[in-house]
Design a protein around this nucleic acid. Structure first.
Lengths: 111, 111
DNA sequence: ACAATTTATGTCAGATATGACATATTGTCA
DNA sequence: TGACAATATGTCATATCTGACATAAATTGT
C-alpha cells in the first residue's frame, strides 16, 4: 500500500496495519504469529499451484484433510514444525523457505 | 570446502558430505533436520555474541537452562517452534531468520 | 590442583500437538 | 435447483514437547 492510499483511508477513520499491530502483541509474539501465518498462506498457495486437494496433500505428508485445513487457516493448534514439514513435503527448497520467512505480510484495513 | 581438499580426503578413505547424507534420509527429513541443526547453531552463536549464559537466555525466553542446552545441542526433544521463538526473543529480525534458514550447512568428514 | 561457573544429560508430570473421525459449510457445475 | 466435491470445524485418545529438577561433565580462573 502506498502512502497516499494510507492517508486517504486514515482520513476516513480506517486503521491501517498488520493484524499483529491491532492485537497489540510483543515483538516476539508478533514475529512468531506473523511467521506462522505466512507459512499457512504459503502452504495453501503451493498446494493450489500444484492442483492438489487437501486430502491429497494430507496423504503426502501423512496427515489428515482436517489437519491440512487447520494448517491453512492458521488454527492455533498447529505447530510451525508441521507447517515446515508440509512445505518441504511439497518439495520447496530451503531457499524458497528462507524467502517466505523473510517476506513481509499483507496489511489490513479496519474501520 | 574446495574440490582439491575433497579429493585429497576421499583418496585417503574419508567420506565427505553433510550429516544427512551419511544418515541416508529422504529429502524432506533431511531438509527438516538440517533446518533444526542450523537453528540450534544459530541460537548458540547469537547467545554467545550477546555474552549471555544459558541460564540468562532461559529467563528471557521463559524456559530453563537444561532446555536451552538441549536446544543448542539439537536434542530430538526440542521443536522448531521453540527454537524460532527463542531466536525471536534474542531479537533477531525475520530477515536474519530467513538468511539462517536459506543458508547451507557445514560439511563433515568421516573415516 | 581446586573451587566456582557454565553447560550437558536424564527423568518426569503436566501441557500442547497430532491424526482420525464425524459432521457442517462452502464451492462447482449441470 | 440439487448432487457432488472440497474445505472447514469440533472433539478426542494418544503422542510429543515442555519447564523443572537433580546431577554429571566440562570450562574457566587462580
Amino acid at each position: 500500500m502506498n502512502k497516499a492510499k494510507r492517508k486517504r483511508l486514515e482520513s476516513k477513520g480506517w486503521k491501517v496495519g498488520t493484524v499483529e499491530e491491532f492485537l497489540d502483541l510483543s515483538p516476539e509474539e508478533s514475529a512468531y504469529i506473523e511467521l506462522k501465518l505466512k507459512l499457512s498462506e504459503s502452504l495453501k498457495r503451493y498446494r493450489e499451484e500444484r492442483n492438489l486437494t487437501q486430502t491429497q496433500l494430507a496423504q503426502i505428508v501423512g496427515s489428515s484433510q482436517s489437519r491440512v485445513a487447520k494448517m491453512e487457516v492458521g488454527d492455533p493448534s498447529v505447530s510451525i514444525d508441521l507447517l515446515i514439514r508440509s512445505l518441504f513435503a511439497l518439495g520447496i527448497s530451503k531457499r524458497e523457505m528462507g524467502r517466505i520467512i523473510a517476506s513481509p505480510r499483507q496489511r489490513v484495513e479496519l474501520k
